[in-house]
Design a protein around this nucleic acid. Structure first.
Lengths: 225, 225, 225, 225
DNA sequence: TATGAATGAGGCTTCATTCAT
DNA sequence: AATGAATGAAGCCTCATTCAT
């Protein structure tokens, strides 16, 4: 019986190793993208970075694009989690917590957020993975939905402007998106006050759409990641 | 002497034709990018669209990237003009006019704004035009500068938050940037209320950073392009 | 001793299972080739179709080509059997029975005959199985030989043209080969009278080389390119 | 005016060179295919054989498959011409001339005929060129059509069996096809009497389907598998 | 004995750029 | 000055085969 167990163990271990490798590929790809730019990363390079053969990569992913997509989805899931935490806080009375959590998540690793933005552009017209793209969209829309109740609530309490609830979320999305681009945009890169700037923008994100927002907010508490 | 004059005329005319063609190339490239997506536009296609030979394109531009850059610069110049008009209005008392003008300009042809954003990503690491990129940055920074006085003024009048003046401009930049991405993002594409959403965001852009902004603004007037 | 017997039995059974699986692999490969086309069948697919691992396939066959070859040989053996039956009939007086049996065999499953033809092309230059190819050739030549007596006989009886006996067999081979290609050729695929056409050709096959058909032809003039 | 003429000449010459190159590519490809086998010929090799760059090949052909197809079509056109000549002769009284011409054409360069047969198999499922494939089919069908009158005539004169006229042509096609395969089939390769064998088969081709050969056969029994 | 993860050579194709005419 | 044929580097992907467990 020991035998059997240890054999099953081995198989399990093997599978784990296999899955770990999958993560290694993603991690290596991510790192390379961050370090060298999307264009300059080839499947060969990724494989070399992981220390495996090119063919092995294709055991895990059907396409190069699938790797990129997977990076995006992983990232989006992370955002979702942070947002969910913020929503809970918000439901406990801290009305700005959701937006705050969202901005913190998006700006936690801005270079990663930026990368994901760029990946999205590349993958927009990719015909392989067109189907899998939906998974990404679904995650985003589920974010939207999970905010719907909170938003409606805050609108009802006259805290938020009375517009379709998702407007508030999408405005946050847009501002975060732009903030990240601002962070890395070469035109503004010469600045050294990025951190303060991002706090300023986060504050805007947290309070924008609020009715009379600048009265009750202690802005010193916002954005202190 | 008649001869000479007419000869000079001819030369001048030739030069004009040459310059006109330069613009044709840009225009054709722009149209193709918009129609087919950046990836699918080759120098050949551009030349064919203009009705000239591929080699001729290279008489006008040293590399393909130069064309892209030129599109960006042209666009940025246009934004600058709109912004300048807004600044003048603002100096005449309409404190939100600058931001409003800016948002209107960026959202006037959002697909073009989006294209330019994408071009910027592609060109970010291009080595050939690294130098010429500065021209773009200069335009943007000059925008920033030309707003400096106005911003300081509005801060002094307690209309705007007391942060470094350029924060206000950069926040606008970011929000506009994000709004455009929002417009075209496939995840939100299924919506039909884009126009209202953009107005909502524009309003935010006009008032964000304002002290107590939602009190004095007649939001019905904002964003009615 | 009981022990030993049952142990030997077990071994025998195991061997049988092993051989059965060999046949399963061939069968599965054949089916896949027929269904998806030679190019699109990989060793992986074959293994999956059998329900075994890829590595196991290589316990039975040294290379993929060996599988293909084995399909060919199996098929050729089947043809041989049909031919043998025809020869016996022919020796009992039905002079056309051999040719008839041959054509029937080749056209019984024309898609299979076609497949084997294609496999032969692929394997023609394969270096791995160069030696084993001889087995195929031997089968064919043994067919030729087993017909030799019959042909000579029919020539002696003035039924068949007086040419080297194997000419008659090879001509049949060629016509059958061509008939099968005709059947599947896309250029003629639009026809619906395939069945009648094949009968017509079979008839030709059965009678061709018979004396009494060259009445008007000056054969010395034919083929002198 | 001399100038102008010589300039036009130059352009014309250039175009001729370009077209010549196209032929060079085909010729080189053909030679390589014949020498090394279809599998072992890559676009790189073809380009090298012509002495041009790989990219240049793609100025002339959209796809590697297009080269293959072009070889096929060129060959088929040649067959058509030979057939046409035979038809004219046949209409002048030599009833077997068409078939004879056809066989001579197909067996003139049997290795080429064989190559084309193999190319056809490869291209059967090629998705690029699917459309262009029709050109090949059209040529073949036009052959069929141009024979229709002759065949009907010979049937009317009781020279040929009274079957649908195209049966006779297709039977010839099949026999020629098979003869070529026979020529190169490794199983029969050890023979040295190929030439005589081919003459024998050609004779069959010329006379098959002629009335007066089915005397003894109960055709109702044939082919009823 | 059976497995299936790993391998990596090698094919096709694209396109910015050059340069001879 | 205008042309467009020529170039060739570079990338993605496939799959027969091996081998450690």
């Amino acid at each position: 019986m020991n035998r059997k167990t240890s054999s099953a163990d081995r198989i399990r271990e093997k599978k784990k190793l296999f899955l770990d490798r999958e993560q290694s590929i993603i991690d290596a790809a991510l790192e390379l993208f961050l370090a060298e730019g999307i264009d300059r990363v080839t499947v060969s390079k990724i494989a070399a970075a992981v220390g495996i053969g090119k063919g092995t990569v294709y055991k895990h992913f059907l396409t190069k694009n699938e790797i990129l997509l997977r990076i995006m989805i992983d990232y989006e899931r992370n955002i979702t989690n942070c947002l969910a935490a913020g929503i809970i806080k918000a439901e406990n009375g801290d009305s700005g917590a959701a937006a705050k959590g969202y901005f913190e998540a998006r700006l936690a690793r801005p270079e990663l957020d930026r990368l994901v933005q760029q990946l999205e552009v590349r993958l927009a017209d990719a015909e392989d993975i067109a189907g899998q793209m939906d998974e990404l969209h679904d995650i985003r829309r589920s974010n939207e939905e999970s905010l719907h109740g909170l938003m409606s609530d805050l609108i009802g309490k006259d805290i938020l402007e009375d517009v379709p609830p998702h407007f508030h979320y999408l405005a946050c999305w847009a501002l975060a998106q732009g903030a990240v681009e601002l962070w890395f945009n070469k035109s503004w890169n010469y600045r050294t006050d990025t951190k303060e700037l991002m706090e300023f923008i986060s504050n805007i994100g947290v309070t924008m759409g609020n009715r009379g927002q600048y009265h009750n907010v202690d802005s010193s508490k916002v954005g202190d990641q």
